[in-house]
Write a protein that binds this DNA or RNA. Structure first.
Lengths: 163, 163
DNA sequence: CCGTATCCTGATAGATACTG
DNA sequence: CAGTATCTATCAGGATACGG
């Protein structure tokens, strides 16, 4: 058993794309810290306000402010000021679609933690609203097959004429 | 459009499971740093040796040693000494099945980076070996439906009799 | 309610030099 | 090849106090 991808074609010079062009590394430049991941988690849970982020993630105000600012700068959250009649102005932070597309990352992290670090699979589950069945992040190919890790192949991307 | 999960049932006291029991937070205690994620990436790519990890991830030896030790301690990698006839003893680090199950996290990170941070979808693709189709991490329910983020529901896990 | 300003601690990580 | 030892810089993050 070899939990290892097989490589097709050529990928060198290895260091070149590894350091700067690896999409995993690039994503980690945008969300690298624990607090960033957990703020995104809260955004998915529906949290929108500064104080709620700080309290529910369990981080201090300065850290909350820094992470929210960075996430807005990177376009994962957007800040919006609004005012309900008779109330004072409030702010809310909401996921953009760019940010929302990180959901599979969070679900995969949740899944792994529930499976390997919790006695009984963790305190919460995700369900498909339409049918009530539990949801998980899994690997699928475009043809719709479930893909096991031994069935994966890493290939250099084909360049198109416009590249 | 509301990129936000709807909640079913009760989850309070919120702070209680958020701080310590949230499976995302717990996973991030095991792999929290950039270097840990990238070492796992390399392990998936087939890297097994100390020097190769250091060079391909682009980190110093002390950092490499620290991360490898932690990942072995947490059971994501296993260290194995081996000796080929006529050669001297070598060491290799290989993914355990526990570690291999983090693959969806890495694929999801790769996918997001390729989509949002790269001009042309990033330098590499994952393919399903059997059929050659590109692979992605997506959300599915146990009934096999593709699940969109608006179709997600967060529910407290039901306790079984043995809990 | 939504932050900023300061100060402080500890962890992440680079550079360099050295050992089995 | 596979690390350890040191030394240092940078950054994540807590605590506290304060301002719009």
């Amino acid at each position: 058993m070899s939990h290892t991808l097989r490589l097709t074609g050529r990928l060198e010079p290895r260091g070149a794309w590894t350091a700067e062009r690896c999409p995993i590394a690039r994503t980690l430049q945008v969300v690298s810290t624990r607090s960033a991941f957990l703020i995104l988690r809260e955004a998915f849970y529906g949290t929108t306000r500064f104080d709620d982020f700080a309290e529910r993630v369990g981080i201090s105000e300065p850290v909350t402010a820094a992470r929210l600012r960075e996430l807005v700068e990177h376009g994962l959250l957007e800040r919006e000021d609004y005012r309900e009649p008779g109330q004072r102005t409030r702010r809310q932070y909401r996921l953009t679609s760019r940010g929302a597309e990180l959901l599979p990352v969070l679900v995969a992290l949740m899944q792994w933690g529930g499976r390997w670090l919790d006695e009984h699979g963790g305190p919460v589950t995700l369900l498909h609203r339409e049918c009530g069945e539990p949801v998980s992040a899994e690997l699928r190919c475009a043809a719709g097959h479930h893909v096991d890790d031994e069935e994966l192949e890493l290939a250099p991307r084909r360049r198109t004429a416009t590249d």
